[in-house]
């Protein structure tokens, strides 16, 4: 019989009052970098849940946590990427379901003192203590993910034209059947690859940076003032909103 030795667990420190729940480590890196830009990183505590399907378990853990009573705001950030799942329900409905699931799952004895409110609209806070709000990516209405938002911010430049041509070539010449759900992440990686070989921008450190999580540290990201792009305004507003009393 073997025994697993647990690693240091996920925890909510006693002084944390604002929590941001994200789907994966890439989202966490991106949004904590954004929070750093805003100078509010130390006021937010980021927790990943490894996909929306595990959001309910994560919220249940938050409800059961010893520091739950100290939490004033919870912001949930997730991709708007699967309208067909859950009987055609969208991401907001999925989040609402996961919140209900967490509220129902905790022990009966806790239900009078521990409950998460159910946001009715994206980016609007619900409830009192804690307040809960949801940010959908790339935005409230479009299917997609964080990478779509970043691609929007990049806009159109010389490299994006080449990326478009590359995917067109994949389809027409190589007969590759593109999976739409994977395309944004793939496109962004290809775009970043283009930046890596650009003598104008790339530093030695950048040559090992391939993914979105690493892109935010690259020279071109800073030189092109990516954080100032208007496409990130709603995300910035969402993080700032979490600090309101």
């Amino acid at each position: 019989m073997t025994s697993r030795i647990p690693e240091a667990g996920v925890r909510i420190p006693a002084d944390v009052t604002r929590i941001v729940v994200l789907e994966g480590p890439e989202d966490k890196t991106f949004f904590s970098a954004l929070a750093e830009q805003l100078g509010i990183n130390d006021q937010l505590h980021f927790i990943t849940c490894n996909g929306k399907d595990c959001l309910g378990s994560t919220l249940e853990n938050i409800l059961n946590d010893g520091n739950f009573h100290g939490i004033q705001q919870i912001g949930i950030i997730c991709d708007n990427d699967f309208p067909d799942s859950r009987d055609g329900r969208g991401a907001l409905e999925t989040v609402q379901d996961e919140i209900d699931e967490a509220n129902n799952a905790i022990d009966e004895s806790l239900k009078t003192t521990r409950k998460l409110p159910r946001p009715r609209k994206p980016r609007e806070t619900e409830g009192t203590k804690p307040k809960v709000s949801v940010l959908l990516l790339p935005d409230d209405h479009r299917d997609g993910m964080l990478e779509n938002l970043v691609l929007d911010a990049i806009g159109e430049d010389n490299i994006t034209n080449c990326v478009d041509a590359y995917y067109a070539c994949l389809e027409s010449q190589a007969q590759v059947k593109l999976q739409k759900a994977r395309e944004p992440r793939s496109r962004l990686s290809v775009y970043i690859s283009g930046k890596i070989v650009d003598k104008t921008y790339a530093t030695n450190d950048d040559s090992r940076r391939w993914f979105l999580t690493q892109a935010v540290d690259m020279k071109w990201w800073k030189d092109e003032k990516m954080w100032d792009k208007p496409q990130f305004k709603p995300a910035k507003a969402f993080l700032r909103q979490l600090l309101k009393p």
């Binding site: 667990g9 996920v10 309910g56 378990s57 249940e60 853990n61 799952a105 905790i106």
Partner: peptide, 19 residues
Amino acid sequence: VVTYNESGIEAAMTTNWEI
């Protein structure tokens, strides 16, 4: 007192949550 029922302990243990 916070009581972890079957669901609670499972959620915590499978996500390595400090309980």
